[in-house]
Amino acid sequence: MTIFSPRSLTEALQVLNEHPTARLLAGGTDTMVEINFRHFEPGDIISLRHVQELQVFETLSTGYRLGAAIPYKQFENGSFSHVSGALSEASRTVGSPQIRATGTIGGNLGTCSPAGDTLPVLSALDAQIELSSINGIRMLSIHDFMLGVKRNARVSNEIITAIHIPKINGFQGYAKVGVRNAMVISIASACLIHNMDKSHISLALGAVGPTIIRCRTAEKWLTQNADLSTSTALTTEVIEEFGRLAASEALPITDHRSTAEYRKHAVGVLAQRLLKRAMK
């Protein structure tokens, strides 16, 4: 059992290729809880802390490339808070300042919990996940990356190196229900993105299914029943129907955090609130 602390991406990919069963360690906020509570017995560990390439942020012609190991605080109110209003709001709801200084989006994707707060945002933005291995780079749509409860499409010799998101002209917002304001895992959450240039609104739900749910039915209905090229206020009927359709697309379960019924109700309300914030 060994810990590797590679100093470059090339080194990291080589070590991972030689030790494909090794656990990648970014912020460690998920992994260390598992280790502290003996839910996970570490074999080899590859620490990504000193891999500078994973901290790099780039502005591209159509959007942004976010290094996978950039911590939440940079998106919350740090240097990159301008890239996506929804990502910034989602980041601000994660854990506590200590967690946000440590935890990373790459780690949120790696864990792939249905309650992961950045995942509805990446889904609503149709983000592309950049996966690297010694064989090269593979780009995967977020919708193909997330497979189920804590399951994703990364193969063992790959590192999530970056997340690509588009620049959006229009409102974007994230809303979450939990038992209190700080340090709370989502009971239900929603992200809404209004792309005025494409006359489209996308909506993704968190914590109400085995993985993030994109509300294709509600989205399609809205395109047919509202002018989305502007942000003019909508009628109450339209807003309510949108919320109802969104709730009907949720597939929640009852667990120790909440009941399926409440979750379904909550995502409907969140969808309505976000739509009202977008169109006014």
Binding site: L25, T29, M32, R49, Q98, A101
Partner: peptide, 17 residues
């Protein structure tokens, strides 16, 4: 210079910090 929970940091990963 970041305030973090030391219980969530793998000690051996904190070399050179």
């Amino acid at each position: 210079n970041d305030a973090v929970c030391s219980c969530l940091v793998m000690a051996a990963s904190a070399i050179d910090t």
